[in-house]
Nucleic acid binder design. Structure first.
Length: 505
RNA sequence: GGUGCGGUAGCCAAGUGGCCUAAGGCGAUGGAUUGCAAAUCCAUUAUUCGCGGGUUCGAAUCCCGCCCGCACCUCCA
């Protein structure tokens, strides 16, 4: 079955074929490293991970690149004078407070005033979160996860190129701007036209900032600014690059092509970020396309509301895993599944209930896996993607990553008969190359840690329940059971006696 | 105001002209099991697809109008 994806660029679902058969080049807009990434960021990153894993199971080699934005952009970089507070400075201030209050472990960061240390601190945190959640690309750092600050000279090359071929100019204020009027396609991704942008800018863009630009939508490529905390020498003065250019440059450089297959990001990036990337890349390369497929994940809501710090419903990955939502530790596989299980093209509503539902699903999948492993001794049959269950599962995903349809294949199959466990194990293993929740390979260490660091002897308590039951002392058995449950364990009977396992969420 | 996405059971959600008297999951209810629970298994759980028209032999699916939600147009995944 043909793979079909919704392409934001053409506003329709189209058949996907990589430019070079069997090899997919894909770029995803990654995190800024002035703070911890939140679950909304990760929904977008996991969406990219899903595409990648799916394409791999479908037989493609996928070269995936994701950037780390460590250039300390001004909060108001969008406007020409680059006003506002520097994000790196803001992060430094925050870190100093956190250091004082002990939230930052000793030695984790020496000098918060050094933007490179701030970036390094949050990059490490990002990679840690990403690995827990099974983002494949996080295991390919640093080769596939470049830092913007490592590509300043390449950015300058592209800026020069754009000036040379008439797509950019140095304004009266000394800054370099991209001329949107030089690129007729500008606006096609977001559905904007230059006229609408001109009108839409009324009242929102301050006149003083517009004076240097030829068109209100012209955007910054290089800003000479001696006062900026991170700055580099350039032909246009010491300063810093515009906030769109890094993606154009790193995608071309690391993927090695002017035209790549897929570019992903959150929906908010459609305009202006991706619109600007397209303009820069196409004008620099002279090619008709930058990415052939643009795919965007819709925003995540929390309990029906937009996630925001002021509403108090703002969660980082570590918040959720640490129990801020459910009141107890959450297994990373549960968060992965929760963020993955709804279609990327719709807003997803992140709820405590949803998270607990996901815990049940993940638990069932893991028990199913354990059962098959035991029955087969880990020996899986040889199968390929034409296996009927796999074919149905992959067909669903082929239809614009219809994850619900795919899960609608998985669950009934799972609870049906499994006369050939070796074959079933092979099916599950293939599906798990995509879902990565049963077992969740990258969380293995964490699991051991959790069961090893307990304050009491779970096995002895289970034995206590069995002994009490054997002597019909049910009050005692119930008491121990309650104790275990209160500590976050699920307690179950089995032919081998009572077993207690940690609740996943 | 402009642009885009969406509105299907208590909740999440698939399905885009007949195989739909609408998949799957969660939840709920009844039953089996259990010392009681939990887990597991079995059964039940939308005659109806935001609202109103229309096209058609036939519509959740196509067309027109309306209502509602979300997003972007400003830093944000």
């Amino acid at each position: 079955m043909a793979i079909r994806f919704y392409n934001s660029l053409t506003h329709q679902t189209e058949e996907f074929q990589p430019l070079e058969p069997g090899t997919v080049r894909m770029y995803s807009c990654g995190p800024t490293v002035y703070d911890f990434a939140h679950i909304g960021n990760f929904r977008s990153f996991l969406f990219a991970d899903l595409i990648r894993r799916f394409l791999e199971v479908m037989g493609n080699e996928v070269t995936h690149v994701m950037n780390i934005t460590d250039v300390g952009h001004m909060t108001d970089d969008q406007v020409a004078d680059g006003g506002g507070e520097d994000k790196m400075e803001a992060a430094a201030k925050r870190l100093k407070e956190d250091k004082k209050s002990g939230r930052v472990p000793d030695g984790a960061i020496e000098n918060p005033d050094d933007p490179y240390q701030v970036a390094d601190y949050f990059t490490k945190a990002f990679l840690e979160d990403a690995r827990k959640l099974g983002l494949k690309i996080a295991f390919e750092y640093p080769e596939r996860i470049p830092h913007a600050t490592a590509f300043i000279s390449e950015m300058q090359e592209m800026i020069s190129q754009l000036i040379d071929n008439g797509h950019a100019y140095v304004g009266p204020d000394g800054a370099v701007y991209f001329s949107v009027e030089s690129f007729p396609e500008y606006g096609s991704l977001s559905g904007n036209t230059l006229e609408q942008l001109r009108e839409g800018s009324g009242g929102r863009v301050e006149e003083t900032n517009q004076a240097a630009k030829r068109h209100p939508a012209d955007f910054l490529l290089w800003k000479p600014d001696q006062s900026h905390i991170m700055k580099w020498d350039s032909p246009w003065g010491t300063g810093y690059p515009g906030w769109h250019i890094e993606c154009s440059v790193m995608a071309r450089k690391i993927l090695g092509r002017d035209i790549i297959d897929i570019h992903t990001g959150g929906e908010d990036l459609i305009f202006p970020h991706h619109e600007c990337e397209i303009a820069q890349s196409c004008c620099a390369s002279g090619k008709e396309h930058f990415a052939r497929f643009w795919m965007h994940a819709r925003f995540l809501m929390v309990e029906g509301e937009k996630m925001s710090k002021s509403k108090g419903n703002f969660y980082t990955v570590r918040d959720v895993l640490g129990g801020k939502v459910t009141g107890r530790e959450v297994h990373p596989a549960v968060l992965r599944y929760e963020l993955l299980r709804s279609h990327y093209g719709s807003n997803m509503n992140f709820t405590e209930k949803g998270l607990k539902d996901s815990a049940t699903a993940v638990r069932k999948l893991n028990e199913f896996n354990t059962m098959l492993e035991q029955k087969t001794g880990g020996q899986a049959a040889e199968i390929d993607n034409s296996h009927p269950v796999l074919a149905d599962f992959l067909n669903a995903l082929s239809d614009n990553l219809n994850i619900s349809g795919a899960l609608g294949v998985l669950f009934p199959w799972m609870s049906g008969p499994h006369d050939n466990p070796q074959e079933s194990l092979a099916v599950l293993r293939t599906i798990n190359r995509i879902l990565d929740v049963a077992p969740m390979e990258h969380a293995a260490d964490l699991e051991e840690e959790a069961s090893g660091g307990d304050e009491f002897d779970v096995k002895a308590l289970c034995k206590g329940i069995d002994d009490a039951r054997a002597s019909k002392d049910y009050a005692k058995a119930d008491e121990i059971r309650n104790q275990l449950q209160a500590a976050g364990y699920e307690v179950r009977n089995s032919p081998e006696g009572t077993v207690a396992t940690r609740q996943l969420a």
